[in-house]
């Protein structure tokens, strides 16, 4: 596989550099009118690392994720994917370079089957363009077969093959979360941004999802996850960043961060 679908690999600037961050945010700020939702947040994620962001409601966590993904406009700061500055790129170009995300409110394609949800994630490349579809039907057919194989491989991994032909709107909340994550993986991501991925996921599946995400990270992905459930953060994340009032107030390993008096005061008490 790979070829036209492994888009991130095609850009030498986003190729992994040993030891260097796969994603770096430098002094990122987001403002809504007079409100500073994110105020100078810097953060780096290395390949294989899972970083968690916690903090009270309104701390700016989702806005920060939006700024990284390109859905929310930055007022200042820089975002680097590998050594490439993606700050000015629209969301679809960031995704094509390997920076993909899920949303706080589930964002499955409701009137498409789970299988279609997955394969659509690969449509951003030139193989699905109007030109390619009209001029190269043979290549399109081959590409479809490759994609189907990949999509079923990912569904198998998440034990979701039985839902392949169900519409997005027919799934449970937890299944919708899984579809979002599986959809991201179809894109061969370098960095995965997850906004509250465990909301709606049944408790007995949470442990499995944590294991799956850790296994995926171990394959070289950087994962940044916004999550409220501290037990999930403890088990899933290598490092934790605590945000409050748009700023980072603490960062480090889970145990030391939750013991920090400032974090206790702002979030945990």
């Amino acid at each position: 596989m790979g070829g036209s679908m492994a888009l991130g690999a095609a850009d030498p600037l986003v190729a992994p550099i040993p030891g260097a961050p796969v994603l770096e945010a430098r002094d990122v700020a987001v403002g809504y009118g007079g409100v500073r939702a994110v105020d100078g947040v810097s953060l780096a994620i290395r390949p294989g690392e899972v970083v968690g962001i916690i903090g009270p409601n309104g701390a700016g966590k989702s806005s920060f994720l939006g700024a990284l993904g390109g859905q929310v406009k930055r007022s200042r700061g820089q975002i680097l994917l590998g050594s490439r500055d993606v700050s000015q790129l629209p969301p679809h170009d960031r995704a094509r370079l390997g920076l993909v995300r899920t949303f706080q409110t589930t964002s499955e394609f409701a009137r498409m089957t789970v299988f279609e949800n997955l394969v659509t994630a690969a449509e951003g490349d030139s193989g699905a363009s109007l030109k390619a579809v009209i001029l190269h039907p043979g290549r399109t057919h081959l590409r479809e077969q490759e994609l189907a194989q990949r999509a079923f491989g990912i569904m198998e991994r998440f034990e979701m093959t039985h839902t392949a032909d169900l519409y997005g709107r027919e799934l449970s909340g937890g299944q919708r979360r899984l579809v979002e994550i599986m959809r991201c993986l179809v894109r061969h991501p370098r960095v995965l941004l997850l906004d509250e991925p465990m909301v709606g996921v049944a408790p007995h599946l949470t442990g499995k999802l944590i294991d799956d995400l850790r296994a995926i990270a171990a394959e070289g992905l950087g994962i940044l996850v916004v999550e409220h459930a501290l037990e999930v953060v403890r088990r899933l994340c290598d490092r934790v960043v605590v945000m409050a009032f748009g700023k980072v107030i603490a960062a480090g390993e889970f145990e030391e961060v939750v013991a920090d008096p400032q974090v206790q005061a702002a979030y945990l008490s």
Partner: peptide, 28 residues
Amino acid sequence: WLSRSPWGRSLRAMRDHEDAASAMGLNI
């Protein structure tokens, strides 16, 4: 034929959730 092609699938993804489609690499 076009509707059933991968291009047509991209259109349906855009119809169902523009932000998610764009976050998956589709140029809306």
